[in-house]
Amino acid sequence: MDVDLLQRIEAFLSRMGVSPTRFGRTVVHDPRFVADLRAGRKPRRKVQAKVASYLSRHGS
């Protein structure tokens, strides 16, 4: 996984005051998504693209 993507997610969570669980549920329908990324999960390219698109659309 692109480490930059996790950094973008972390910055988004901090700036927007969104919980990791809510972010995962909203973006990829997986409430454990961020926790799993922090633990080393490597999402597929399609999921990475979906998250990157969401972050771009929401000002990250």
Rank of each mutant, 00 (worst) to 15 (best):
V34H: 03
R8S: 15
L6W: 10
F12N: 08
M16G: 02
L13F: 04
A49P: 00
G24V: 05
V51A: 09
Q7T: 03
K42Q: 14
R15P: 00
T21Q: 13
S56C: 00
A35V: 06
G24R: 05
D36W: 05
S19M: 02
R32C: 04
V28K: 09
G24F: 07
A52T: 14
R41W: 11
D4A: 15
V51E: 10
H58S: 04
G40I: 06
P31K: 07
R41P: 00
K50E: 14
T21N: 02
R45M: 08
K46H: 05
G40K: 02
P43T: 04
L13N: 04
R32A: 06
F23Y: 03
I9K: 11
D36S: 12
F12G: 10
Q48M: 12
R45P: 03
P31L: 00
R15W: 03
F12S: 11
L37Y: 08
T26Q: 14
A11C: 01
T26N: 08
A49Y: 01
A49K: 13
G24S: 10
F12A: 04
R22V: 11
F12D: 10
M1R: 07
F23H: 04
D36Q: 15
G17P: 10
R8A: 13
R57G: 02
M16E: 15
V18T: 07
S14T: 10
V28S: 07
V34M: 06
L55E: 11
G17A: 10
R25T: 08
F12E: 11
L37V: 12
S53I: 01
A35D: 11
E10Q: 15
Q7I: 03
A49V: 09
F23N: 06
S53P: 00
G40L: 03
R45E: 14
A35M: 05
S19H: 01
L5E: 08
A39R: 14
I9Q: 09
R22W: 13
P43A: 07
F12I: 06
G59I: 04
R45A: 14
A35P: 01
H29K: 14
K42R: 13
S19Y: 02
L13K: 09
L37N: 09
F33P: 04
L6G: 07
R15E: 15
H58Q: 08
T21A: 11
R57I: 01
I9S: 10
D30T: 02
A49F: 01
A11W: 05
M1W: 02
F33E: 05
R38I: 07
P43Q: 08
S60Q: 13
Q7K: 15
V47Y: 00
L5H: 04
I9V: 15
G59Q: 10
